[in-house]
Amino acid sequence: MNLTHTHRHLHSEQGALRGEHPGRSRNPVIKVADIAWLEFEKPDLTRAEAFARAFGFHTARHDPGELHLRGTRAGGPCVILRRGPRTRFTGVAFRARDEGDLLRLADQSGASPRPLPESIGGLSVDLIDPSGMPVRVVAGTHELPELPGQQPHLFNFGDETRRTNAGQRPPRVPARVQRLGHLVIQSTKYLEALDWYLDNLGLIVSDFLFFPGQRHRGPTMSFIRCDRGSTPTDHHTLAMALGPANRYVHSAYEVSDLDALAAGGEYLNERGYLRSWGIGRHIQGSQIFDYWRDPDGFLVEHFADGDLFDDTLEPGWAPFTASGLAQWGPPATKDFLGTDLKSARRELVSMISALRSRNEFDVNRLVGLLKVPTS
Rank of each mutant, 00 (worst) to 15 (best):
D311C: 10
G316Q: 02
H302T: 01
F320A: 03
Q287A: 08
D296C: 05
W317E: 01
F320Q: 03
G324P: 04
P319E: 05
E314M: 15
H282D: 02
S286G: 11
L325I: 11
A322K: 08
H282E: 05
T312P: 09
L308F: 13
Q287L: 01
F320R: 03
L299Y: 12
S286P: 09
W292E: 00
A326E: 10
W317H: 07
H302Q: 07
G297S: 09
D307W: 11
H302P: 05
D305N: 13
D290P: 04
Y291T: 01
G285V: 02
R293N: 12
L308M: 12
W277M: 00
G316T: 02
T312C: 09
Y291D: 03
I283E: 12
I279G: 06
L313H: 09
Q284G: 12
G278H: 07
E314N: 15
D310E: 07
D311I: 09
F289V: 08
Q284S: 15
A304H: 08
E301A: 00
S276W: 02
A326T: 11
S323Y: 15
E314R: 15
S323Q: 14
D305F: 13
G285K: 01
T321Y: 05
G297Q: 10
H282Q: 06
P295H: 08
L299S: 11
R281D: 04
Q284E: 14
F320K: 04
Q287I: 02
G285W: 00
A318L: 10
D311N: 14
V300S: 07
L313Y: 12
I288C: 09
F289C: 04
H302E: 06
S323F: 15
I288L: 13
P319M: 04
G278Q: 03
L325M: 14
W317V: 06
H302Y: 11
H282V: 04
T321L: 06
R293A: 10
D290W: 01
I279A: 11
S286F: 15
T321E: 09
Y291K: 02
F289T: 06
D310M: 09
T321S: 08
G324A: 05
W292V: 00
D311E: 15
E314A: 15
F298K: 00
S276G: 09
P315L: 08
P315N: 09
D307N: 13
G280F: 05
R275M: 08
A322G: 10
G280L: 03
L308Y: 15
T321D: 05
W292L: 01
G306E: 04
F289E: 03
F298D: 00
I283H: 13
G280H: 04
I288K: 07
S323E: 15
I279W: 13
F309Q: 07
A326H: 11
F289L: 07
F298T: 00
R293P: 07
H302K: 08
A318R: 11
S276Y: 08
D307R: 08
A318Q: 12
L299D: 12
G306D: 06
Q287N: 09
S276L: 10
T312D: 12
G324H: 07
W277R: 01
E314F: 13
F289D: 02
A322V: 07
A318V: 07
G316E: 01
L313E: 10
G285R: 00
F298Q: 00
G285T: 02
T321F: 02
P295G: 07
G280E: 01
R275Y: 05
Q284C: 15
P315V: 07
G280D: 02
